[in-house]
């Protein structure tokens, strides 16, 4: 049972980051390597919020909600900042994909140094959001922090997907993912919608950052692991496919949990990349190609 919990936790966190990468790629054609920087931005914003909150003696539910909101806001703003540098000025130039790839890589490298300068190399803890107790489910215990993280992540993912399916803004984004020309023709602005996508992807990443800080810490390089795994999950899911990304997150989360439990933690990267390579050899369009039967 612990393996299942651990798999669910990993899957939901990776899912949040991977959906953001996948959305960004599918809608504006930018492979956002700065997603790790956006991730840490959320973590540090939540950390600053916790510092300020403690001087005012804020605690309980208000502190928990505040931490989550601060993390999501911080990352959304970081997402917009990345857009202002790597998307808006380059968007209608030749080779936008390569240029933005390099620009986001630069932001990611510079960002790590900026965090080092301002916050130093030490790990920063966040106060517990869901309390410190443990809950017994089906005969095995799980920390409240982990359980809360899984529940909040799944709820938030569900809410975003529902919103994408039902609202006018969601329709615009999905339309832009499928056919940018068609979207322009019906009056959807690539630039405005693109920035909106970056803000939402950022917010989801920031949520993952705050929730994961319940188990780990915030540090200048804590965004690297989520970025790497988020990237390979969005690839395995077939960039742009929402069901594919969710399925890939589940699969790779389970693989990581099983490997860490029954083999060795150090083998995790080999197993994850191995699975992705196998998926892409047999299904070049990722798992999304299996789940959606649409010809382009």
């Amino acid at each position: 049972m612990d393996v299942v919990f651990s798999a669910l936790l990993l899957a939901s966190m990776y899912g949040l980051v991977a959906i953001g990468i996948s959305f960004t790629w599918a809608s504006i054609g930018m492979l956002n390597l700065a997603q790790g920087f956006i991730f840490t931005a959320g973590g540090y914003t939540a950390f600053l919020f916790a510092e300020i909150a403690s001087t005012y003696g804020l605690e309980g539910v208000a502190l928990s909600v505040g931490l989550i909101v601060a993390g999501m806001l911080g990352s959304a703003v970081a997402g917009l900042a990345v857009g202002a540098v790597a998307f808006l000025p380059l968007q209608d130039r030749d080779n936008f994909r390569t240029r933005s790839l390099i620009a986001t890589l630069a932001i990611s490298l510079i960002g790590t140094q900026v965090w080092l300068i301002f916050f130093g190399p030490q790990n920063k803890p966040l106060p517990p959001i869901f309390g410190t107790g443990r809950t017994e489910i089906a005969g095995s215990g799980i920390g409240n922090g982990q359980l809360g993280a899984i529940v909040v992540a799944v709820l938030m993912l569900g809410a975003v997907i529902l919103w994408m399916r039902s609202s006018r803004a969601g329709l615009q984004m999905r339309a832009m993912m499928m056919n940018p020309l068609g979207a322009a023709v019906v009056g959807v602005s690539v630039r405005t919608t693109g920035m909106r996508v970056l803000a939402i992807s950022g917010a989801l990443t920031g949520l993952a950052s705050v929730l994961l800080a319940q188990t780990f810490f915030v540090s200048p390089t804590s965004g690297v692991q989520p970025l790497t795994v988020g990237l390979i999950i969005s690839l395995a899911g077939g960039l742009g496919s929402i069901p594919g990304t969710v399925a890939a997150a589940g699969l790779l989360g389970l693989a990581e949990a099983l490997t860490a439990r029954y083999l060795q933690q150090s083998l995790v990267p080999f197993v994850l990349f191995g699975i992705v390579v196998l998926i892409l050899i047999f299904r070049p369009r990722g798992l999304g190609g299996l789940l959606e039967d649409v010809r382009e």
Binding site: M178, V186, G187, V188, E296
Partner: peptide, 24 residues
């Protein structure tokens, strides 16, 4: 295409060549 959304909103509708529908 940068001005296209604005122009479209002023009241011009285009059914382009190749349809440009949203397959999904």
């Amino acid at each position: 295409g940068r001005t296209t959304p604005n122009i479209v909103r002023q009241g011009i509708a285009l059914a382009p060549q190749g349809d440009a529908i949203f397959p999904g």
